[in-house]
Design a protein around this nucleic acid. Structure first.
Lengths: 376, 376
DNA sequence: GCTGTGTATGAATCTTAGC
DNA sequence: CGCTAAGATTCATACACAG
């Protein structure tokens, strides 16, 4: 079980107290200020996102969405949020080694402010990384695009900083021998990995998946490095660090989160040296929408598609839908409609004329898939 | 060939000069200030990225990478870049209709500053969209992740702004009948689409793919809308707008870009009305009161309605309301009440017995709508 | 044990017309 | 402007339970 340090005790201590592999209980900035200069190799920070939610949101079945409405996520203004961001980033920079790097995760609600503040404080952005979620929550009201990703910024503490850790070859090897890209695909944290209380409810509203942290740690730290998480929450950073043979320092205010994290980390079994392979993200058969063929010019708006025996035909519209006999819909919906069926696989039903013969549009999808094969 | 307006001439003009489907030559902010208030439906902006490149970058074979080192991309400091960003965003907001939206594209070099400035100016972010590149440039030095995406911010001019255009149903139908996500996959602009000069060199260093602009315009504008691009460059926005039956206004300083864009747009053939029609959902259909079904005799007073599984039932009254268990109300209110919910769509909840099976009353509404449509 | 069905849920800035 | 009422709206997973 990792030690928990009340911040007051850490301050009182005259001798240097090792905080390695412990959770410091207290305010993030105050705790950071109690740590020595240049003492950590990497920082992963998952700060409050400052979501500005209106009323309650219901799913189409009228069930209520359990929103993030915790007090710690509320800020009265952007100015206050920016001041908070400046304060913890400055405190982070002091404890970070010159060869270290910092990761910050956020959404469009806060990440632009975080990124601008990082630049204002003379951090040097190395990459912005997109976490694409395989299973994001839908947009229930249909008024926006489905918010299907979060953004991480990876930065070094100074534009002139040299010698930061980036395990390029490990990343490349883990990615079918091509360079690891800036867009990563992972499921959200759910199922058995998601910490639940005795009441069966989630312990923390924004627990991050271990696979995400594993890729971060494998890419930008070495075994034995010290990883600091100033917003420790349910302790994902600590659990993954321990499993991967890294040390951690967590900072957290709420006792409930600390208790859950400490128990969680205690149960982690570190991997042996030979097992320290990089976790790979989710691979899946690329799903190609018909619209991709239109957008790429393989099928043109106005073009006529027909079934294999030319009994039915339809016209392609610019939005990637088809129209025929005054009806319209996706390739599947309209294929079903013209046949009077409930369902239809539009990919095999609809054909295009290549000048010589009718060919199923599925052939074009295969072409697209082959060019996208590595991209999930 | 689209008309080109020297800004000086536009200002001299005492009569209102229509700038629709023209390229205004001049400084971005000055040109915007010459346009009327609330006059454009959508803005797409591809501002300078403020890339801070060090020396010359070489590929592993020692060939030189043709970097973006144009004078227009250079800013002495973040402060200057922010001031520039504020100026053009403020000018954009004035010409944008309250129901309009703005798209801005950038990379990690500038997008955080743009996003924070948008928020500071009280724009309301609707989504951040990730353009995942199928064929990004590799990271030649192997010191970072491959920078494989750019970020777009989609925002409305005010948090309270309502009525912006989002063609949700068209996006969903185009995407195999599931919601369009915030991560989009497109190739970079290359091959025949890439404008080349007589010397065979690319005309513009950051020409965007037409497919990207097509999805943007299809998602957030209607045919006939006016789309403004304050950094017109090689005119991708104008070319796609013309093809998709939208109007454009371009602003550009450099004569070489204007010449290339004007010729390019002149060659574009607009699509016809059929191809430009997009999928719409129930939201856009005329409202039909339930009472109309009763008045038309499709539903009779005293008739029993029930839900799909016959768990709840209600009796139709002559005034078009329902009653059950001593309670009464509209089809929606009573549907909610019998289920103990806050809200309910009575059209899909309540069913009538056609002698064979239970059918939703929504089917009768469709019949009424089709009848109404024939009377237009 | 296996398969199919029904239900629950996740960092969410999530309606609009009409009076 | 504020209020009320109409009525539109979900994808991927995990899990419990039935057959």
């Amino acid at each position: 079980m990792p030690t928990v340090f009340p911040l007051a005790e850490l301050r009182r201590s005259s001798a240097p107290v090792s905080v390695i592999d412990t959770i410091i209980k207290g305010d993030c900035v105050a705790a950071l200020e109690a740590l020595p200069d240049n003492s950590v190799d990497m920082i992963f920070a998952d700060p409050p996102y400052n979501l500005q939610l209106g009323g309650t949101l219901h799913r189409p079945d009228q069930s209520k969405v359990d929103a993030v409405d915790d007090a710690w996520d509320q800020f009265a203004s952007f100015e206050l949020y920016d001041a908070f961001t400046r304060a913890w980033l400055l405190a982070c920079r002091r404890v970070l080694k010159p060869t270290g790097t910092i990761w910050v995760i956020g959404s469009y609600h806060n990440i632009f402010r975080v990124g601008a503040t990082l630049q204002d404080l003379n951090f040097w952005i190395l990459n912005d990384i997109v976490w694409r979620k395989t299973n994001p929550m839908p947009n229930f009201k249909g008024r926006r695009f489905q918010n299907a990703h979060e953004t991480m910024i990876w930065a070094s503490p100074d534009p002139k900083a040299k010698g930061y850790t980036f395990n390029y070859d490990a990343m490349k090897a883990a990615n079918d021998d091509v360079q690891m890209r800036s867009d990563w695909l992972f499921p959200i944290c759910s199922g058995g990995e998601r910490l639940k209380g005795d009441d069966g409810k989630k312990v923390h509203p924004t627990q991050k998946p271990e696979a995400l942290l594993a890729r971060i740690l494998m890419s930008s730290t070495k075994p034995g490095d010290v990883v600091l998480d100033p917003f420790f929450g349910s302790g994902t950073t600590g659990a993954v660090a321990k499993r991967l043979g890294r040390h951690f320092v967590g900072i957290e205010r709420e006792q409930d989160y600390i208790d859950a994290a400490a128990a969680r980390i205690a149960a982690v079994e570190p991997l042996g040296k030979t097992e320290l392979t990089v976790m790979t993200g989710k691979k899946s058969e690329p799903r190609v929408a018909f619209n991709v063929l239109v957008e790429n010019g393989m099928i043109k708006p106005g073009q006529v598609l027909s079934d294999a025996k030319r009994r039915h035909s339809a016209i392609v519209r610019a939005d990637g839908t088809l129209t025929a006999n005054g009806e319209a819909g996706s390739i599947h919906r309209l294929g079903a409609k013209v046949q009077g069926l409930d369902a239809c696989n539009g990919w095999t039903f609809w054909h295009f004329d290549d000048g010589t013969s009718l060919r199923p549009i599925d052939e074009l999808r295969t072409v697209v898939r082959n060019t996208m094969a590595r991209l999930d």
